[in-house]
């Protein structure tokens, strides 16, 4: 238990550091981008929004830096990330809240599928190294070496334009009202299949390769030989001894990739016009929507931290050695 509390403490400090850096970056930026933005949106920014914006960007010349810092924390803890310019007058928090479920739902599920299938295939190939199974490796590596946007465009050309199996863009049929009906969920799955497929195909080779190599390493460990000598079933040796230890490094890279789901799928969401967080980041950059950008960066930071917490806890459960005090 102390292990988990110590880790939690570590993450609280990291979160504090991340938010503090997020606070200082606009303040050390040369020039005054925000004043220019306010001027550009003259009359369209309410007094409240302007005050919040000033706090977020450090424009309150009349208050001390320390006071600004405390105000900034106050805003963040209340979930107030300012008002978006591009989607004025929607608050940034609402824009992000509307986008995040789409990204997490689509990319999250695709990443989990990719990790699961890749790890299973990788342990199989690693266990039977040197056989025909190894020839799967170059094929999967080819797909991960292909630039993602190209792969996605080819997929759209083949499956949407030529064959017409899947829609080329969007996240659900616009004629439907978003509710928890089977029709709507079916439409979401239908629209999400092609983007998910391209993500799985382009990322699976990393999981296969990582697991395969760890399996090869672990298979020559003494405890695997001992397990064989004990005469336990091949299944037990494979899953209980070899794969059980080979998966440990996979778990940490999985957690890292979970953190990057939130921010790392910009290209997919642009290519498929999918209304996730990456798509909004892209529009925010195009529209010089600084509050939205800053909000998305903060959310990405928090997501990476959270994924790391999860990874630490899972790792602690899977590997007793990491629970050691000291």
């Amino acid at each position: 238990m102390r292990f988990f509390l110590r880790r939690l403490g570590f993450y609280v400090i990291t979160f504090w550091a991340a938010v503090t850096i997020n606070f200082f970056i606009p303040r050390i930026m040369p020039g005054d981008p925000v004043r220019a933005l306010i001027a550009k949106n003259q009359g369209r920014i309410s007094t409240d929004a302007e005050a919040a914006l000033r706090t977020l960007f450090g424009l309150e010349k009349e208050t001390t830096l320390w006071q600004q810092y405390l105000d900034y924390w106050g805003l963040i803890l209340r979930g107030d990330l300012g008002t978006s310019f591009a989607y004025f007058p929607t608050p940034v928090a609402d824009v992000i809240a509307g986008a995040i479920p789409w990204t997490i739902g689509l990319v999250g599920i695709a990443t989990i599928i990719s990790f699961t299938i890749g790890t299973v295939i990788g342990s199989g190939i690693g266990w039977r190294r040197g056989t025909w199974a190894d020839s799967l490796l170059p094929i999967s590596t080819f797909f991960s070496a292909v630039p993602y946007f190209w792969l996605a465009l080819i997929a759209i050309t083949i499956f949407s334009v030529t064959l017409g199996w899947f829609p080329a863009s969007g996240s659900y049929d616009r004629s439907l009202v978003p509710t928890f009906s089977w029709e709507f969920i079916g439409s979401v799955i239908y629209y999400g299949t092609l983007p998910a497929l391209t993500i799985v195909i382009s990322s699976i080779s990393g999981w296969i390769l990582g697991m395969r190599n760890m399996m090869v390493t672990v298979s020559s460990e003494d405890y695997v030989t001992v397990a064989q000598a004990k005469g336990v079933s091949e299944r037990t040796v494979l899953f209980g001894y070899a794969a059980r230890n080979a998966i440990l490094p996979q778990v940490s890279s999985f957690a890292l990739s979970l953190g990057f789901i939130v921010g790392g799928t910009l290209i997919m969401e642009i290519v498929f016009s999918y209304q996730g967080i990456g798509y909004y980041l892209f529009t925010a950059v195009a529209a010089k929507d600084y509050p939205l950008m800053q909000g998305i960066f903060l959310v990405i930071t928090v997501a990476v931290l959270f994924a790391n917490i999860v990874a630490d806890f899972v790792y602690g459960v899977l590997d007793p050695r990491t629970r050691q005090e000291g």
């Binding site: 460990e221 405890y223 001992v226 000598a229 059980r244 230890n245 590997d319 007793p320 050695r321």
Partner: peptide, 14 residues
């Protein structure tokens, strides 16, 4: 039954 030389690595660490 067999006892190997690697006393350190003969047991599954997890």
């Amino acid at each position: 039954a067999i006892v190997f030389q690697g006393a350190m690595n003969s047991l599954n660490p997890v």
